[in-house]
Design a protein around this nucleic acid. Structure first.
Length: 419
RNA sequence: GUGGGUAUAGCUCAAUCGGUAGAGCACUGGACUGUGGAUCCGGGGGUCAAGGGUUCGAACCCCUUUACUCACCCCA
């Protein structure tokens, strides 16, 4: 054997035994999103790096420290997408989709960030997200948040919904200036990280987990109290909408979104089943972003969910992984049987019956063991005697009962027996 | 980028004071000439993460490196 090559750090294989869980959550996403009028879009994994410096923010950690950037044969600076919103909006603008009125889109696929991996956080991870364009009204915010809740609850997942408003260009800058001044005055009482953050991202300071910072920050000015009238009205309407839809939420004045483009509504679904990475899904409004990326002024709101994190929650809940298994496993007793079994499997599959066989042949014991391994519902032994008689015994692998069955019309018989 | 933990068979883990590598599961063969889960018996499988040091002797002690993992930061 030659030297072994392993997967890249933070990039994981998803083996057949685990894929079923992902297929389930993806299928349910497609189903639920369609109920709300969202349609799937697929965009490239590679985009111009400039898309993210402009869309996500040059100074964010995602762009400045974590993005995979490379030269394309010395021509362009390209990036592995670190998130889904910017690329989706790029496509929205590029294809002039805005002329068709409001659009509701969703996507799912891999994203890449070069961070230190830990539980629920990987360098290649998968997001399922939606973007709704062209509607500024708060009813859309409520509908979208309710949709996430709907999807998660159908998976049996219980989460906490946190809601906040991060203001807009009319009210946030003034607040930010006041907050920065307030924090600077109290720098002596804050941890080193917080002093650093005061300059870089003052909103983040409010979220500090250090015990000594908490009491100081309790009395910090709150953005929720400083919202301009339009933001206030919007926020109240989102809350009213959620109340009307029966969606429970927690107003979390310190909730902040990590990316620069968010305005007004910010929301997050969290779970305590995840260790430190408690955020399962996060979203918010980005009314200025389409314009920033070269499109016409278009309001928008979206969210992204971490598929690995959702899968982790489902696993913690002990939710079984749906498995596909053969309805029947064909066992060959001799050479005549081996030929018959091959032909029969082809007929069954064309009739839509999932079946399998052990192409190695060999002893019956081994073939039955293989039948058990693939979790076949039934087994059918074929030898020269059965082929001559046109009839075999169908064995129920669970009860071990055998019943005679004619080979002609076997597919129909199996389908009936399966119900 | 910073800090903690871990590293022995495919998997989960043992190995006493430093004395030259073991179990369970899994795999494979047989007991069983047309029937899988049980039982019994056998078999294959190891650079003890890597490199260096101490020692008559190292899986074990020391140093370095690497990988994995959890957490900080940040985020989904």
């Amino acid at each position: 054997m030659s030297a072994k090559i392993n997967a890249v750090k933070g990039m994981n294989d998803l083996l057949p035994g685990a894929v079923g869980r992902w297929q389930e959550l993806e299928a349910l996403a497609r189903e639920v999103f369609a109920l709300y009028g969202y349609r799937e879009v697929r965009t490239p994994v590679v985009e111009p790096a400039a898309l993210y410096s402009r869309g996500v923010g040059e100074q964010t950690d995602i762009v400045s420290k974590e993005m995979y950037v490379f030269e394309d044969k010395g021509e362009d600076r390209l990036a592995l997408r670190p998130e889904g919103t910017a690329g989706t909006i790029r496509a929205f603008i590029e294809h002039g989709a805005f002329v068709d009125g409001p659009q509701k889109w969703f996507y799912m696929g891999p994203m890449f960030r070069r961070e230190r991996p830990q539980k629920g956080r990987y360098r290649q991870f998968h997001q399922i997200g939606v973007e709704a364009f062209g509607i500024a009204e708060p009813a859309l915010d409520a509908e979208q948040i309710a949709m996430v809740e709907d999807w998660l609850s159908r998976l049996g997942v219980k989460t906490t919904l946190k809601l906040n408003s991060v203001g807009d260009p009319a009210c946030r800058p003034a607040y930010l200036a006041d907050l920065t001044a307030w924090l600077t005055e109290r720098a002596g009482q804050l941890c080193a990280d917080c002093r650093e953050r005061t300059a870089k991202n003052p909103l983040r300071v409010l979220d500090c987990k250090v015990p000594t910072c908490q009491p100081v920050l309790q009395s910090a000015p709150r953005l929720l109290d400083r919202l301009c009238d339009p933001c206030r009205v919007h926020f109240d309407a989102v809350r009213a909408g959620l109340d009307a839809l029966g969606v429970a939420y927690l107003v979390e004045p310190r909730l902040v979104r990590g990316l620069d483009y968010y305005v007004r509504t910010a929301y997050e679904f969290t779970s305590d089943a995840l260790g430190a990475q408690s955020a399962v899904a996060g979203g918010g409004r980005y009314d200025g972003l389409v314009e920033t990326l070269g499109g016409p002024p278009t309001p928008g709101i979206g969210f992204a969910l971490g598929a690995e994190r959702l899968a982790l929650i489902l696993e913690a809940l002990g939710r079984p992984i749906p498995v596909r298994r053969p309805l029947v496993f064909l066992v060959a007793a001799d050479e005549a049987g081996a030929a018959a079994v091959l032909k029969l499997s082809s007929d069954l599959r064309k009739a839509g019956v999932a079946c399998d066989l052990d192409a190695r042949g060999g002893k019956l014991a081994r073939q039955f063991k293989q039948a058990e391994r693939v979790a076949a519902r039934f087994a059918l032994v074929l030898g020269s005697a059965e082929v001559a008689a046109g009839e075999g015994k169908l064995k129920d692998m669970t009860t071990r009962q055998e019943t005679p069955v004619k080979l002609a019309g076997l597919a129909a018989h199996l389908r009936e027996a399966a119900t």
